[in-house]
Design a protein around this nucleic acid. Sequence first.
DNA 1: TTGACAAGACCGTCCAGACGGTACAGTAAG
DNA 2: CTTACTGTACCGTCTGGACGGTCTTGTCAA
Lengths: 189, 189
Amino acid sequence: MKKPRANSRDKILAAAADVARESGPGNLSLDAVAQRAGVSKGGLLYNFPTKAKLMQALVEHHLQEFQEALETARRDCAQGNLLAAYVKLSAKKFEEDQPPSAWIFSAIAENPDFLAPIRIFQRELFDRLKAETPDFKALLLTYFAVEGMRSASLFDFQVLSEQERQSLVSSLLSVARGNLTPVPAPALN
Amino acid sequence: MKKPRANSRDKILAAAADVARESGPGNLSLDAVAQRAGVSKGGLLYNFPTKAKLMQALVEHHLQEFQEALETARRDCAQGNLLAAYVKLSAKKFEEDQPPSAWIFSAIAENPDFLAPIRIFQRELFDRLKAETPDFKALLLTYFAVEGMRSASLFDFQVLSEQERQSLVSSLLSVARGNLTPVPAPALN
DNA sequence: TTGACAAGACCGTCCAGACGGTACAGTAAG
DNA sequence: CTTACTGTACCGTCTGGACGGTCTTGTCAA
């Protein structure tokens, strides 16, 4: 709880993600992470006493970040439409050239149980969407199409052109806003 | 040309998938695979001279299998609708309780380049779909929703109930068959 | 028919290197 | 004095894979 020299934890987390991307998810070694973070191995193990803890922190850090971004995006979104915010935020992430995604595979390789927090997150998010979205079928379509795009970006399948992707995103947004199918009432806040 | 004792290659491939699922994708060792396949390590290395070759074979085997299943599904499908066949085949795979998917993570952990054949496959499939599907927007929606479901099944995110999944699949099928918007009417067939 | 030979298919062992983690002494800052 | 490290040395384990030997099967001349 005292002050770290510089914020070592965050540096290490970022370094871990970098190493995973550059050396491949299966070659994430503690030595490499320490070196990359500009930290001694002792220092690394001081912050994360075990590799598993590092992975766990990586997952939790990412989830927290996404959560906050989602809340922000929602505020910026018309009528606080959660589904639309989700689509928009996800689309923005897919545009980034350097997907910081490889670390996930490292975590899975280390131990598939590290997916559990993500599972919970995903489930809760979907439940919220279910509660807030009037047209359930539209939700299903939109949500899974977004997940499909996420999957494509994760595995680096570049199937769509820039143009096509934008077209898809705007389709999704209009479905999310309830335009494609007859909708009983606009989402109330 | 010559006769293998029993079909060792296939046994090894299956064993590798099993071990990946049971021991975790990061713990796929040659010894474990050999033991599981009822083959000595030497015998394993004879069939697949390196671990990388094993992984490659795993990927190619799977791709070939999927390709054949898709062609079959298409023949069984009304009007040879490729998109509908794709939806149906994928939906069938998602229903299987025991997703043989973990081996993919092993391959990625070993070397992310093993995704390349899958990328090519995906791209070619999408091009075929593009050529054969009149409504491009409907294709985008359907294709990525299917990929989203595949992703969910791969990571074992069980967000949907049985009922909900069937509802989504039938929505997708009706979109695939050329009904412009997702339709509330129950799909036949 | 038989025996010799070659090649294919597989076994079992050994090893060098990598990796996670420990231990511990030192040190700069607050 | 405590916190937050650095740096070095070290240990035990696991793993890919090289290697040499063995068993099986097919071929073909005598």
